[in-house]
Computed example of a mutant assay.
Amino acid sequence: MEHLPKITSAEISMLWSTYIGDTMGICVLKHFLQTCEDQEIKTIINLALKSAQDHVTQISDLFINEGIPLPNGFGEQDVNLQAKKLFSDITYLRYLHHMGRTGLNSYSLAKSVSARKDVRNLFKQFSDQTETLYDRNAELMQEKGVFIRSPYISYPDKVEYITERSFLGGLLGHRRPLLGVEIAHVGINIEVANVGKTILLGFSQVAQSKKISDYFKDGYELGKKMVEDFIIKLKEDDNSYPSTWDSTITNSTDAPFSDKLMLFHTNAQSAIGIGDFGLAIAASLRKDLTVTYEGYILRVGAYAEEGVKLLIDHGWFEKPPQSIDRESLRNQNK
């Protein structure tokens, strides 16, 4: 029998986060499936739901074998399948496209920091499933004419080298046109913010707590400002920009999800957004772009912190795996 060392801090953390995220995803997808009217979109939702359920089952088996307690995560108490439709079917597609892109990045990172073969294989399987889902979802979005493409640029016609440091630009005065990779990241952040705005506006409409509803509305306003600022960056160079069209939100005030789930979901989306800004900074050479992204990292970080405080105040913040507090143990013996 093959000897398996204990799973590392990175492995247990990635598995734990995946478990929590997929139990939340199962709740969201069940309501999407219940209320979706388009049969083609229903097929995609069902595929995503089965993948999330498979992930939860496999991580549960691994944790049980390792003697690790299963997280509570989310369950039937966090979704109301009788609640009316809140978002349009097209929103479901856009949401799955966004979450699929996030999943591909997350599983790639998780595999790269995992040592044990069975854990690496698990994350490879999760990545393969997500890639299949992403491709099918992207193809359906294109068939329905709702796939948001990155802005186009003219093809390069020669090879050039940069010889002036002014290429990096400054905060004031004339700046060089945006690079293709810079345009791509600005476009991605516009689309992600638009999806986030739609979700947050819907959440603010159905949240049971006024304080939490107001929190979602604040997030919507932050996302709105973000989109405006990023579009200005593209317009300055006469670049095209992604559609700002927001998917339809119904007039329903029935909460399909618990306030706990919606708050956790919003916090997770904030973390994803901060990660996207970090990637954009790494790819951007123009100083004004870097400053803009850094500013939004601070603003979204502060917004996320308020969300965590709300989770803690309501007793909803499940403690992630952490190292032993040695100082606390020493104090117990005194």
Rank of each mutant, 00 (worst) to 15 (best):
N239M: 12
L122D: 01
N46S: 14
Y303E: 01
I153N: 13
Q58L: 12
D54L: 13
H185Y: 09
G301N: 00
T102M: 05
R330H: 10
K235G: 14
V308S: 05
L179V: 07
Y134S: 06
V300N: 00
L86V: 15
R286K: 08
I68Q: 09
I212P: 02
D259H: 09
L285A: 15
N331I: 06
T253P: 07
L178H: 05
F74R: 15
D313A: 15
E164P: 06
K6R: 14
R94K: 11
K6D: 13
F32A: 00
F63T: 14
S252N: 10
V79P: 07
I44P: 11
Q332P: 05
E191L: 03
G187F: 01
K42G: 11
E76S: 15
S60C: 10
L279Y: 13
G223L: 01
D259V: 08
L81R: 07
K84Y: 00
V119S: 01
I41K: 02
M24V: 06
Y241C: 15
G187N: 04
G219M: 02
F257V: 14
D288A: 10
K117I: 09
F277V: 08
G169K: 00
V308N: 01
D78L: 12
V195A: 04
S112P: 02
D254N: 15
N105F: 11
E160I: 13
G170R: 04
L133S: 06
V227M: 03
T163D: 11
W316H: 11
D218C: 05
D288Y: 07
P177V: 03
N46T: 10
G187M: 02
K42Y: 09
L279A: 15
V119A: 03
S51C: 09
V192S: 00
L4P: 08
G273V: 05
D78K: 12
H55E: 07
S270D: 08
V186T: 07
S51K: 11
C36R: 00
L311S: 04
D254A: 14
T35F: 01
L15F: 07
N105T: 13
V28T: 10
E306Y: 02
M24T: 05
G295M: 05
S106P: 02
T91S: 15
S213T: 04
N105A: 14
T18P: 04
Q208R: 04
K260H: 13
V300P: 00
E294P: 07
G275E: 01
L49T: 14
D78Y: 10
D54C: 12
L222Y: 00
Q77K: 14
G103W: 01
S252E: 04
T163N: 14
K224N: 12
V146C: 07
L201I: 04
G223W: 01
I90F: 12
E191C: 01
Q205Y: 01
N72K: 15
D214K: 09
E40M: 04
L62G: 14
